[in-house]
Amino acid sequence: MRRFVLIAVPYLWLVALFLIPFVIVLKIALSDVALARPPYLPQLDITGGWDSIRTFFSELDFENFWFLTTDDLYWKAYLSSLQIALFSTTLTLLVGYPIAYGMARAAPEWRPTLLMLVILPFWTSFLIRVYAWMGILSNEGLLNQFLLWLGVINEPLTILNTNAAVYIGIVYTYLPFMILPIYSALERMDDSLLEAAEDLGCSRLSAFWLVTIPLSKNGIIAGCFLVFIPVIGEFVIPSLLGGSGTLMIGKVLWEEFFSNRDWPVASAVAVILLLILVIPIILFQRNEQKQREAEG
């Protein structure tokens, strides 16, 4: 009995507040937009008996999904989200790997402090960390003032409200997610392997390519997924740092819902976004599982 209660309470909570909401999203994605409250049709009316339930189901259709394919805003937004996520994941890897490598090579008594310094920004508000770049990247911002002072440029660069600012924001906010798994892979590495490679005639660089990189592969894969998956649905970064030319699906969904008040289309956008995410999520879980099996 006690076991039953223990299982039932969190189970029912998640069914009520996680699973059922999804069914509702799916249902509204199949409905039509209407000038009503709530603004979609048909409404399910159980009091009408079987007939009304049958007519309810017959009125659902895939019209909104067709609409998403006809208006090129949507597939462009999906593609551009994927492209931005891919490019910024690569950038984050290039920035994060040397930091993780340096941390793993630092003296052991320094490592806990360095680790804390990487985790600390993660506890600070995401919104504030994105906002901090607005003042730096604007036309009269510190970066432009600095570059003008150096004499590298003659007139301020437009960085804020472009995709470049979005990339900077993503690399900055998601960097800890990349550093931590790579660091934990590198820290476990046995250094005698590198020495063996060098004894056998490898140069330092080729020992790095042939030994260090393959051994940190799982960390790299985990880090990339931890950045890539959430970036696809990102909303805050493109809306604060990006411009009107920055197309990301999270922003489109937000505007579809709050500005256009088209709930059925917003729901259809959400359903497709979820279908796109299922693939990287399954790949990520396979990688995690492989790693767990390899460890024990």
């Binding site: 909401p21 999203v25 959430p230 696809i232 649905g233 909303f235 729901s267 976004l273």
Partner: peptide, 11 residues
């Protein structure tokens, strides 16, 4: 791993 926009919308 759920995008926040989807969690928010569905709730």
């Amino acid at each position: 791993v759920m995008p926040e926009v989807i969690t928010g919308l569905s709730l």
